[in-house]
Simulated assay, not measured.
Amino acid sequence: MSLAAARVPLLPRLMARTAAGAAVLLAAILAGVILGETPLPWETVRAAFANNLWQAGLPVDPIDQGIIWAYRVPRTLVAAACGAGLALAGVVLQALVRNALADPYLLGVSAGASTGAVAVTILGVGGGALGISGGAFLGATLAFGLVAALARAAGGGPAQMVLAGIAGSQLFNALTSFFIAKSANAEQARGIMFWLLGNLSGVRWPDVTLAVPVAVAGFLACLWHARALDAFAFGQDAAAALGIPVRRVRIVLIGAVTLMTATMVSLVGSIGFVGLVIPHAARFLVGPRHGRLVPVAAIAGAVFLIAADVASRMLIPGQVVPIGVVTALVGAPGFALILIRGRARG
Rank of each mutant, 00 (worst) to 15 (best):
M1K: 09
A4P: 09
V8R: 15
L11G: 00
M15N: 03
M15V: 14
A20V: 02
L26F: 12
G32P: 14
G32W: 09
P41N: 02
E43A: 12
T44K: 11
A48Q: 10
L53T: 08
P59H: 03
V60S: 10
P62K: 00
I63F: 14
A70H: 14
Y71L: 15
R75C: 04
A79I: 02
V91S: 12
L93S: 05
Q94V: 12
R98C: 02
A102F: 08
A113G: 11
A117E: 10
V118H: 07
V120D: 14
T121L: 15
G128M: 09
A129I: 06
S133P: 05
A136S: 14
A136H: 11
G139Q: 12
L142N: 04
G145M: 13
G145R: 09
A154H: 13
G155T: 04
V162D: 00
L163R: 10
F178C: 03
A181V: 03
A181S: 08
Q188M: 06
Q188L: 04
G191W: 04
I192Q: 08
M193D: 08
F194Q: 14
G198Y: 06
L200I: 01
L200E: 04
G202Y: 05
V203A: 06
V208L: 11
G218T: 05
L223S: 13
R227G: 08
A228E: 15
L229I: 05
F232W: 03
F234P: 09
F234Y: 13
G235D: 09
A239E: 10
I244L: 08
V246I: 04
R247M: 08
I251C: 14
T258S: 14
A262G: 02
T263D: 03
S266R: 12
G272C: 03
F273I: 01
P279N: 03
P279W: 00
A282I: 03
R283V: 01
V296C: 14
V296F: 13
A297L: 09
A297R: 12
I299M: 15
F304M: 09
A311L: 15
L315T: 01
G324D: 07
T327Q: 11
P333Y: 00
G334L: 06
L339E: 11
G346Y: 05
